[in-house]
């Protein structure tokens, strides 16, 4: 098996250009699960964890850039993330347990493109941009256009996920994150919800809602968003928001939960977040 652990992005691109079949390694918390034959039979691997460009949290212009292999523990503890993107800090703290948080990353979550990835609805409501690094240079894709389908992404051959850019959120907007799992830690979500919203002059001025584990991919619930923006910020709208959210998804029965429960939990969580928004109750 070919194996490379480059120390620079340029070196990584050279390796990958020579050998586009190399499997990219981040925290390996998903890749290493499963049959040993699968991982031992890979044609080759390229470890991204040694690339400093991919392991950082820093402001650039008006966006916070988070490297694709930056472990969630670092995101969880970052004062920058906690201050400007509390929903992401919260999501990072709810992934797996301490050990998993020390290894798993946004890049891994995105590349896996599971419907249940805990950070993904947060990226949707934060309107994250994904910076992909390829042989020709970088290109930037909105995250909502990156995750194409069940375990399908817009990552092209010879490309790697470099980092995400999180635009500075609107001043005073509230952020909410809620993961509903079978237990308090080490759980894959039954439903995961993120909301970024704001109220001004007594009306909902911003309302970005996303949910995971309720469809093949994490969804922005645009029908709910359209119905909410401009409404008077009163408690009554919370029921409507929950109801519309439940209508907007097509969850399934599986080993972890039921379609009925997922729809119910989504409705209730959206309702609760919206109530907190109109009452300006921080989570």
């Amino acid at each position: 098996m070919k194996a490379f652990a480059p120390r620079s992005l340029d070196e990584a691109m050279v390796r990958l250009t020579e050998d586009p079949d190399l499997r990219l390694l981040a925290g390996c918390t998903d890749l290493m699960v499963g049959e040993p034959e699968d991982r031992l039979g890979l044609p080759g691997v390229l470890d991204l964890r040694g690339l400093s460009e991919l392991r950082r949290i820093e402001w650039h212009d008006d966006a916070l850039e988070i490297g694709a292999v930056t472990p969630f523990s670092q995101i969880r503890d970052s004062p920058e993330v906690q201050k400007s993107f509390p929903a992401l800090a919260e999501a990072a703290s709810k992934i797996g347990g301490w050990q998993i948080q020390n290894r798993a990353s946004l890049g891994g979550n995105m590349a896996n493109a599971s419907p249940a990835g805990d950070s993904l609805p947060v990226l949707l409501v934060l309107e994250a941009q994904v910076v992909l690094v390829g042989p020709e240079g970088t290109r930037t894709v909105p995250y909502r256009e990156f995750h194409l389908g069940y375990r399908q992404t817009a990552l092209g051959p010879g490309e790697i996920i470099g980092w995400v850019r999180l635009p500075k959120p609107p001043e005073n907007a509230m952020q909410f994150f809620r993961k509903v799992g079978a237990r308090e830690a080490q759980a894959i979500s039954k439903v995961v919800v993120a909301l970024l919203a704001d109220v001004s002059d007594g009306r909902v001025s911003e309302y970005r809602l996303a949910a995971g584990s309720v469809a093949e991919v994490p969804l922005r619930l645009t029908e709910v968003e359209k119905a909410m923006v401009g409404r008077a910020a009163k408690a009554e709208i919370a029921n409507l928001a929950g109801h519309l959210a439940a209508q907007a998804v097509r969850p399934i029965d599986d080993v972890r939960s039921t379609a009925e429960y997922r729809r119910f939990a989504l409705e209730q969580v959206v309702r609760r977040m919206t109530l907190q928004l109109v009452r300006r109750v921080p989570e």
Binding site: A5, L25, G27, C28, M32, G97, N102
Partner: peptide, 29 residues
């Protein structure tokens, strides 16, 4: 468990707890 659920294989890597069942040798260099 061999899949990162139970923590029985926890070791410290550069001082941080990680799961050795999910850690390929290439990342231990």
């Amino acid at each position: 468990c061999g899949e990162g659920e139970c923590g029985a294989c926890t070791v410290l890597m550069n001082g941080e707890p990680v799961l050795s069942c999910l850690l390929p040798l290439i990342q231990c260099e």
